[in-house]
Amino acid sequence: MQGLKELGRYSSLLYQALRSSTEFSTYRKNLFQELVKVGTDSVPIIMLVGIFTGSVMTLQSAYQLEFAFIPLSTIGAIVSESILIELAAVISGLVLAGKVGARVATELGTMRVSEQIDALESMGFNSVSFLVVPRVLAGIMMFPVLYVVASIFGIGGGIAAGYFSGSVPPADFLKGARMFFYPWNVVFGFLKSFVFGFIITSIACYKGFYARGGAEGVGKSTTEATVLGCIYILLADFLLAALLL
């Protein structure tokens, strides 16, 4: 029962957001602020995530395939394909569920418990348009950008790790990566990051928007936003793979 109620509230919030997404002048300033906070400010951590994901993948694949009779280029194929299809989107998603999701939920939750949202509404502002829409839009728009960053730095990190550890020469790595490079994989990765951006920001907005019970309530809603964001990212990842591959 509780779950159905939550789903209904979540859906109606999204519906309001969708309906008010035409009021561009209301949220224009907020949108750019959010785009910077979600996107530009997240680039350094996503670079770091990409580099480490790629290099660890390379080192571990090289270690696992050390004794098998397979060409070294296979490692490049495995690493670059895993990064493009799965890791760039999912690991950045999980990291951003912590970084972005927590921030959004805390911001909105604090505004809710300090009654700022009520104040906005009493002044005739559309609070959903003013607060929720720019955040969700920023997630949808910036996550694909961050996916690009994660992919590039992931594959670059993989090549660098292979080169510096001496396990895979860059030429072999690239040969394998290019041999199994299918444009659809990139499209699929973009689609994932798009979906994850929506999931993280919308759940965080929902949890923050309906936070209750003072500082404790804000903390609870932040935790829930992060945890649910992670869970739904994994669920959506599975569903996308099952439906589209």
């Binding site: 750019f32 530009t40 670059s80 694909p144 960053v149």
Partner: peptide, 27 residues
């Protein structure tokens, strides 16, 4: 820099890098 410019730079860089990376991977 205003927020608009920051966002613009980020998106532009991402698009350029994506195109170059795509062409690079397609050889």
């Amino acid at each position: 820099l205003s927020n608009e410019i920051k966002v613009g730079i980020t998106v532009l860089l991402a698009v350029v890098v994506a195109i170059i990376g795509f062409r690079f991977m397609r050889d």
